[in-house]
Design a protein around this nucleic acid. Sequence first.
DNA 1: CTTGGAAAGTCAACAACACTGACGTAAAAT
DNA 2: ATTTTACGTCAGTGTTGTTGACTTTCCAAG
Lengths: 164, 164
Amino acid sequence: MADGRAGSSTDGESLLFLTDEQLRKGIEAMFFAYRGFTADPDRLLEEYSYGRAHHRALHFIQRSPGTTVNNLLSILGVTKQSLNRVLRTLIADGLVDSRVGRRDKRERNLYLTESGAALERRLSEAQRRRMRAAYRAAGPEAVRGFRQVLEQIMDADMRAHFHG
Amino acid sequence: MADGRAGSSTDGESLLFLTDEQLRKGIEAMFFAYRGFTADPDRLLEEYSYGRAHHRALHFIQRSPGTTVNNLLSILGVTKQSLNRVLRTLIADGLVDSRVGRRDKRERNLYLTESGAALERRLSEAQRRRMRAAYRAAGPEAVRGFRQVLEQIMDADMRAHFHG
DNA sequence: CTTGGAAAGTCAACAACACTGACGTAAAAT
DNA sequence: ATTTTACGTCAGTGTTGTTGACTTTCCAAG
């Protein structure tokens, strides 16, 4: 029984937001929203016959220029064979530059080329446009809650990648 | 320029939550959170050698018993051939019951069998457990914002499926 | 009543992207 | 000198998506 948080059984906040029905709505909201979230980049990617995996790689290389393959692997949570297939095409197509590490020559430091950065910009601008509209419509208070809940949903070890 | 909402250029709410950096954090939060969101069911599904598509079908049949293939199609946003493959295995494995429509014999009305309902319960309970922990940690105010923003992110035609 | 179209579902072939397992090379660490 | 780490690659498999072609069923217009 009970809850462990402030208050007795039915406290001021009323725990109605924790009912199975409310949770089901949250689950479906995640499902439908994620589809919308990826819809715009997906359309653009078709033009290049790339997939979401390419988008993710471009995004995280843009975020951390010079990142290593291993670091990307732990962020994306896929196997190296899977990531390698994607990186290989991006490098072959001249969107990503892979340079042998200066300190540790086993490592490869990954950078976006100009055209890689250009595609990444198109993709993220499309995605940001939707997010911006959603944020604007919902307001800053809602956005704060949105971010708080999402951060709680992540696996703990992903939170490290999320910050910093 | 400007904004279109209440206030002049830098109004009370301050539009700092709409910066590209804030939007990028939101985008990454969606990415990392969605992985956590699906992680628990994914583990369970492995035991049955099913995938997410099976989970989605079970979920929405549970939500609307007797739903038709066509209705499921518009909710899930995939081709009927893709859904059919999934449904075929669920029916063959005795988790889903497909009954020829009474009025229209072209339609199939879909129901969960007892064992189908049992699996669906295991999957959704795992997913709810994580959502419940996240909701509880973030609080009802944050959950309200979470839901508001997600609803804005969805495509408009998905909002209809989301409600009622 | 018949014909023709729309809708529901099936079969076949194919692509994207994930997985495992095995192997190789080079560099760093012990 | 040996082991571990980082990266790349080859081969094989599975899920989930796609398109195209086909049957069955229903309904409505001729």
